[in-house]
Design a binder for these strands. Structure first.
Length: 558
RNA sequence: UGGGGAGUCGUCUAAUGGCAGGACGGCAGACUCUGGAUCUGCUUGUAGGGGUUCGAAUCCUCUCUCCCCAGCCA
């Protein structure tokens, strides 16, 4: 039914394949800068680059764009490698670093100088800005623009040797100060930075800029299609210019729209701020849209990849509904997660006609979506816990769970009837429900009385105390990037994005759950064991709720 | 008011001269020992004006709106 549709990049590639532009090769790369953690927006790019290579029998490299030692750290390199691998992609032996090319890059810069296409400029950063002109006015040429090749060569070599201070000199491409494209107004291609680099140490004190390093790195690696985001569209003439001037193998840059997701932010600057100002517990806080955060939250790589497939690739800016991500997540989790019963907000139920010391083990299906998942035994006894939300003293019409005089089924067990209840006179909170059970109604028996609701429950005597962390969207508005609505995006954070429940009651089969394991808590949602769990206490992260029709009805009738 | 891009259901995305389709969301129903899942149906869209054509989302033209660029960040 679903016809396979190609995105515009695939169309370009298929055309190139047909015309033999790159000899039938397809070679892409994912080029992160190691200055932060990867997020779901990067996942789009990763899936695109690795996905296209796979689809056309090509290759995809992982390359760190580490040309700025002021911002980059080893820690990020480690995290990025882990995340890309976790997503399920393999670059085999093609792990590269732009810093591996520093010597070659330097030689290319020398070559450019020799061709009269680059010069050392003594203007300060401030002066360069002034000389650059504005969006509507052309720039002015630097007084140092026409130095001789020899002088430039000498100066550039001395820059490398560390004879000058930071900011004192830069190497600039000699292009066109009057260009309508500001990137072509003699862009800086080398600057002095006297900071140790995480890989090259103090071997260098001059570093190439992105504009210079990127096309050349792509060229060195034999990349065919260099996919990047829209904001680099203006840089493409520059990308092409370097390669043309240096007469190097010439990949083609193609730009696509970056991902935006509702109710979150996806800029590294903003995510860094959330971490540094402590609005979240770290890069892997389960509320973060980072790969590490989503992994901890309980997302699967399959769900993320499915999402990336479904959002498509185009050139128009857009904001994808958060609901689509959740749909992909539920779709995957539903198939793979064992079901288990956990009561988040317990109220006690006493089955008055059930023997005091009796314990029955009822058989429970682990996953109705997966027959191979088998069954388990769950203890049932006279005292149980059920969810506080599953009882109402005065139920509205559409509420068909437990209420005085009402009958419901306890999943995998018996039908019970609420005969009486107790409430705390101070708080008005229901404390205990007195119910009777129908011994003939056991699950699996022939007696099939119909009741409108089925509840999850846990035997009080056998219950395990667990902690559950309920996460909600990080922001309370669909578009926290909107300056009109959120002058400062921090002010639009959702104050209820995390609720910690410490008095939750879990069925005993969960005893051996290990960090990273995922479950469906029946009727509630999907939960993953957090690494904060200990022998004494399990901690669960709510990955995503189940679709909740009752919640909708409830909000409509109120 | 320089340069570069983009406008298709609420959202994302197909259709490149021939019935505007899919997904998510929403709504309604069926089914259900999860108010889950599943299934069925419905809903809504070519930014605007002119033009070419038997026929235009698609071609031409004018207009409008939105995004990106003035880092020695990427």
């Amino acid at each position: 039914m679903e016809k396979e549709t190609k995105n515009f990049i695939e169309k370009i590639i298929e055309e190139d394949l047909e015309t033999g532009k790159y000899g039938g090769r397809v070679h892409t790369r994912f080029p992160p800068e190691p200055n932060g953690y990867l997020h779901i927006g990067h996942a789009k790019s990763i899936c695109l680059n690795f996905g296209i290579a796979e689809k056309y029998g090509g290759l995809c490299n992982l390359r760190f764009d580490d040309t700025n030692p002021e911002k980059e750290e080893e820690e990020y390199v480690r995290a990025i490698i882990e995340d890309v691998r976790w997503l399920g992609f393999d670059w085999e032996d093609r792990l590269y670093y732009a810093s591996d090319y520093f010597e070659r890059l330097y030689e290319c810069a020398v070559e450019l100088i020799k061709k009269g296409k680059a010069y050392v400029d003594d203007l300060s950063a401030e002066e360069i800005r002034k000389y650059r002109g504005t969006l509507t006015e052309p720039g002015k040429e630097s007084p140092y623009r026409n130095r001789s090749v020899e002088e430039n060569l000498d100066l550039f070599e001395r820059m490398r040797k560390g004879e000058f201070d930071e900011g004192q000199k830069v190497l600039r491409a000699k292009i066109d100060m009057a260009s309508g494209n500001i990137n072509m107004r003699d862009p800086v291609i080398y600057r002095i930075i006297k900071k140790p680099h995480h890989r090259t140490g103090d071997r260098w004190c001059i570093y190439p800029t992105y504009d210079f390093a990127h096309p050349l790195s792509d060229s060195f690696e034999g990349i065919t299609h260099s996919l990047c985001t829209l904001e680099f569209e203006d840089h493409r003439p520059l990308y092409d210019w370097f390669l043309d001037q240096l007469e190097l193998y010439h990949p083609q840059q193609i730009e696509f729209a970056r991902l935006n997701l509702s109710y979150t932010v996806l800029s590294k600057r903003k995510l860094t701020r959330l971490v540094e100002e402590g609005h979240v517990s770290g890069w892997d806080d389960p509320r973060m849209p980072t790969i590490a955060g989503m992994r901890r939250r309980g997302y699967t790589p399959e769900a993320i990849r499915d999402f990336c497939d479904r959002i498509g690739v185009a050139k128009a800016n857009s904001i994808v509904d958060f609901e689509l991500l959740e749909h992909c997540l539920r779709d995957d989790l539903n198939k793979r997660c064992p079901r288990v019963m956990v009561v988040l907000n317990p109220i006690r139920v006493i089955i008055t006609n059930y023997p005091e010391d009796r314990v029955e083990y009822v058989e429970a299906i682990n996953n109705p979506e997966d027959p191979t998942a088998g069954t388990r035994e769950v203890p049932f006894s006279r005292e149980l816990y059920i969810e506080a939300d599953d009882f109402m003293e005065e139920p509205p019409k559409k509420f068909y769970r437990l209420a005085p005089g009402r009958e419901v089924r306890l999943k995998h067990a018996y039908i019970i009837k609420c005969e009486d209840y107790e409430k705390d006179p101070e708080t008005g909170r229901i404390t205990t429900l007195y119910c009777t059970y129908d011994p003939e109604s056991k699950s699996g028996s022939n007696q099939q009385k119909k009741v409108k609701a089925t509840l999850h429950w846990v035997s009080a005597r056998h219950a395990m105390d667990v902690e559950v962390r309920l996460y909600d969207r990080l922001f309370r508005v669909p578009n926290p990037d909107d300056k009109k609505e959120c002058p400062d995006f921090i002010d639009c954070l959702n104050p209820d994005s995390l609720k910690i429940l410490t008095n939750c009651k879990a069925e005993p089969s969960l005893k051996n759950a290990r960090p990273g394991e995922r479950f469906q808590f029946l009727r509630l949602g999907y939960f993953a064991v957090d690494l904060d769990s200990s022998e004494e206490k399990l901690v669960f992260n709510r990955t995503v709720t189940l679709r909740d029709t009752w919640k909708k009805i409830k909000s409509k009738i109120s």
